[in-house]
Amino acid sequence: MNLTYLILILAATIGGGMIPMLFRKVHPNLPIYLLAFTGAFLFGITIMHLLPEVYHELGHSAGIYIVLGFFLQVFLQQLSHGMEHGHTHLPSTGGGHQHVAVLPLLIGLSIHAFMEGIPLGFHYEDQSALPSLMLGVMAHKVPEALTLITVMIHAHQSKTQLWRILVIFSLITPLSAILAAQLGREFEVVTNSLVYLVALVVGAFLHISTTIFYESGTKHHELSRQKVLAIAAGITLAFVTLIFE
């Protein structure tokens, strides 16, 4: 377990959440293209590093857990309203006012954040997998936290509440990674189970990243030139991580 990785993820999450607090008029295209870039990067990391690892460990049965993880994420987004892949169009009440069910949203996004931390506590045969995954999670945390705090601002949370939500949310993924690594060292049953949990997270990552490609905020969900360039940049950076090998 590399604590530097976890500190970087913590800093990225807090930094992303601070953007809408410091700049109330964030350009609407910023989260769209940031999500496209980080989603493509996370997709590349998942395909190039995590997917080979789980198939190496589990063989053909890995596919079962990946599919389960994919549909687990489908369920979680019913709570989070798809915020992890950039959705902010939450249900509205009459008069055009947004009505935000804060608690289910935070529960869904917190479970997702906890799942993101589990692979960071796993021991990989491929030495390039962990640093690459750290970069992918760190990049994804910026637009994720940005979207979370933007929605919380529209839910009329006070500044104190915003900071409390941001700090707690920022800690979930690092603490999940520490918990997975610590329990994996102390209990053999946890060690043997971690690879199955990683396979579930791979499925969730595939759902999130591919959804971002088509839905991250652009009108009619089209692939604009700028969005294609952002996706291409993310995939290219994922290829660059192969130099860690």
Score class of each variant (00 low, 15 high):
1 M>R: 05
3 L>S: 00
3 L>N: 02
5 Y>H: 05
7 I>C: 00
9 I>E: 02
10 L>E: 06
14 I>R: 01
20 P>K: 02
21 M>A: 00
22 L>E: 07
22 L>P: 04
23 F>P: 02
25 K>P: 07
25 K>W: 11
27 H>C: 06
28 P>F: 05
32 I>D: 11
32 I>W: 07
38 T>D: 05
38 T>Q: 00
39 G>H: 12
39 G>I: 13
41 F>D: 08
41 F>T: 04
42 L>Q: 12
43 F>R: 07
52 P>H: 10
56 H>L: 10
57 E>R: 14
60 H>V: 13
61 S>W: 14
62 A>V: 14
65 Y>L: 12
65 Y>T: 08
66 I>L: 10
67 V>R: 13
69 G>N: 03
71 F>R: 00
81 H>A: 01
82 G>K: 03
83 M>T: 13
84 E>I: 15
86 G>E: 02
87 H>V: 08
87 H>D: 06
92 S>F: 13
93 T>A: 12
96 G>K: 02
97 H>N: 08
98 Q>K: 09
103 L>N: 07
105 L>C: 11
107 I>H: 02
107 I>G: 03
108 G>W: 07
109 L>R: 04
109 L>D: 07
111 I>V: 14
111 I>A: 04
112 H>M: 11
112 H>D: 09
113 A>R: 05
115 M>V: 01
117 G>F: 02
118 I>T: 10
120 L>H: 04
121 G>C: 01
122 F>L: 07
122 F>Y: 14
123 H>I: 14
125 E>W: 11
126 D>Q: 06
126 D>I: 06
127 Q>L: 11
130 L>S: 06
130 L>G: 01
132 S>H: 01
132 S>A: 08
134 M>W: 12
134 M>I: 15
141 K>P: 11
142 V>P: 13
143 P>H: 03
143 P>T: 07
147 T>H: 14
148 L>H: 07
153 I>L: 13
155 A>S: 09
155 A>C: 10
157 Q>M: 15
158 S>K: 04
162 L>P: 03
163 W>L: 15
164 R>S: 13
166 L>V: 08
167 V>I: 13
168 I>M: 14
169 F>K: 00
176 S>H: 08
177 A>H: 09
177 A>D: 06
179 L>D: 10
180 A>Q: 15
181 A>T: 14
182 Q>H: 15
186 E>Q: 15
188 E>Y: 11
190 V>M: 09
192 N>A: 13
192 N>D: 15
194 L>V: 08
195 V>E: 12
195 V>C: 10
195 V>M: 12
196 Y>F: 13
197 L>I: 15
198 V>P: 05
198 V>S: 01
198 V>T: 10
199 A>T: 03
202 V>M: 03
203 G>Q: 05
208 I>V: 08
208 I>Y: 04
210 T>S: 06
212 I>K: 00
213 F>K: 06
214 Y>A: 00
216 S>E: 11
220 H>M: 04
221 H>Q: 00
222 E>H: 11
224 S>L: 02
225 R>D: 10
233 A>N: 00
234 G>Y: 04
234 G>N: 03
234 G>T: 05
236 T>D: 04
239 F>D: 01
239 F>N: 01
242 L>Q: 06
244 F>T: 09
